[in-house]
Amino acid sequence: MDKKKKRLVMRTVILAVLVIGIAYTIYAAATQDKTKTLQVGDDAPDFVLTDLEGNKHKLSDYKGQGVFLNFWGTWCPPCEKEMPYMNSQYEVYKDQGIEMLAVNIAQSEFEVQTFVDRYGLGFPVVIDTTKSVRNAYSVRQLPATILVSPEGKVTEITTGELTEQRIGEMLESIKPN
């Protein structure tokens, strides 16, 4: 190769490597928060938690079913308000391939049981004692609702109170065909 051409190739390669490196750094820095938190479209992180009856619920066991995950605490008034709505919609959809799991954040069994008894909740309520599932789903604010498709993908992440109609629509969206 002629000397001038070789020099041009070298310069192009060096500049390209540098520009790509810098572009990646800037991109990674800008999307750092996004890669750390759960996004719609991600695989739903698998977990296993125990409900008040002592039954273990493993997310991956529900593959083929739509899963409605609700993170809540007894101290959170909007959580409390949407629970009865969830309960009545659960009655409608439970035989249509929908699983509903309410994940309590690290409260005592007694408090959770009292709450469940008061509202007569029919869906399983599990307690995330070590807050590991909350971390895995990057839940910061309660109530948080995450929809998992029958394929195990996150299809929606919502924080804040839900209306009964909205819950119905959400369940409809993850119903297996």
Partner: peptide, 21 residues
């Protein structure tokens, strides 16, 4: 962490490398 600050640092990096070569 702004993009323009990082671009400036990156440009300085390129400048150091190219000028040295």
């Amino acid at each position: 962490s702004s993009w323009w600050f990082q671009i400036l640092v990156g440009m300085l990096g390129i400048s150091i490398i190219v000028a040295s070569i």
